[in-house]
Design a protein around this nucleic acid. Sequence first.
DNA 1: TGTACATCAGTGAACGCGCGTTCACTGATGTAC
DNA 2: TGTACATCAGTGAACGCGCGTTCACTGATGTAC
Lengths: 233, 233
Amino acid sequence: MSRRSEITRKASTQSIAAPRARALATEGGDRQSYHVGNLRESLIREALSILQEGDGLQALSLRKVAAASGVSHTAAYRHFDDKNALLAAVAEEGFRLLYDYQREVVAEAGDDLTERFLNLGWLYVKFTIEYPQHARIMFGGAGLEFKAYPALVAAAAKTFRQLLEVVRRGQERGIIAAGSSKHLALAAWSIVHGVAMLVLDGQIRLRGDAADIEQTVKSVISTLFHGLAARPA
Amino acid sequence: MSRRSEITRKASTQSIAAPRARALATEGGDRQSYHVGNLRESLIREALSILQEGDGLQALSLRKVAAASGVSHTAAYRHFDDKNALLAAVAEEGFRLLYDYQREVVAEAGDDLTERFLNLGWLYVKFTIEYPQHARIMFGGAGLEFKAYPALVAAAAKTFRQLLEVVRRGQERGIIAAGSSKHLALAAWSIVHGVAMLVLDGQIRLRGDAADIEQTVKSVISTLFHGLAARPA
DNA sequence: TGTACATCAGTGAACGCGCGTTCACTGATGTAC
DNA sequence: TGTACATCAGTGAACGCGCGTTCACTGATGTAC
């Protein structure tokens, strides 16, 4: 008993992002023995799990999250000032998760920069499709005031900086056009974010299988890469 | 008395989009003498007005909308099956409004197609910034099941088709690259939608004035036009 | 023109619900001497 | 080692709230004869 609580306490002191990046994609984990030491993490995890069920943002309540963690609903106030603070933590976790995924793609060896760009963009869209409600919280659908949560702002900025670096490296190698790398990165982020949101909202109908969607999305991204305008022949 | 109700009844039989496209941008109109004949339009208008106050989607309730229309909250059920049906009507109205605005830009004379493209894109973003909550309903933030509302689907499709036509005309004139015009239009929609959402969510911080934002947005769109890749020199 | 009836938009009371938040509390664990 | 005390995570009852929806109703307007 005392041994277990020692373990869980230790777990609570380190970032939950790294060890859980994979776990999130799989199943919920053990439901027992939360409390004392890891309730905070448990609440975030269960919130994600509830969002994953797809009943929309308004299906997420403090009470449900607490119940899923096997805890009285007032216990949440030990760890979060209020409901919004929990949402902010969920969003923050989302950005860390996305960052980790992106890092893998960026780190992948491969000389074809275009290819890598397509993959990075496709990853972003895939993330949004796989974690739609999660993505909505991250991208303002919950009406969260980001400014009130510096850690959240930092996590989001870090994710964007990753893209910015890829653009810069491309420019150095002469593969990406010269100019404000910030504006170019913004263009890349915008198109990928836009197509993700349109797919998520069903404006882009995903008739056909996953492969079709992937192809469509990549075609859109490659339009950005090569330009909409006709090349002067 | 009977004369007035005749007028309002006639008004209710035609689309509210055209005559109101301008009115929406200005003030709320007269609050008296709704009922019998134009309650439906009044409910939609007041819903928009409440959304415009910017307290978020969840601040919009049937009861508030009815109260703003000066009517018992159960009266709404005379005109809408339920709350979602009202939301769908609001979204539909939004697409019609956007369509009308776009048509003006498209119709504007001007030989410079690039310029016109930038203007069309900027219009889209401006619309989203000016009617943020409205845009959220239109773009899935309310969790509306679009499929259940054919008129809504039609209005959205019509707006997209407008963009598609511009792309096709550009291709005919050899100004826009050959290839699937649908995919190209999708790319244009995506980037514009993405940048709009990122601005709306504060991910793109709008330090500086409106002109700065306009410049940034147009720079992003022109990146799509000319391509991210370096031109082979 | 007058009467009887149908239609239908809007009323207001009532319902049950889940919500976020507060409060005084309990009981286990950690710390000082 | 033992005692007294502080800390602190979690409890459970209670609060007030606004919500969507239902129901039987009222009263004005339109229609048939």
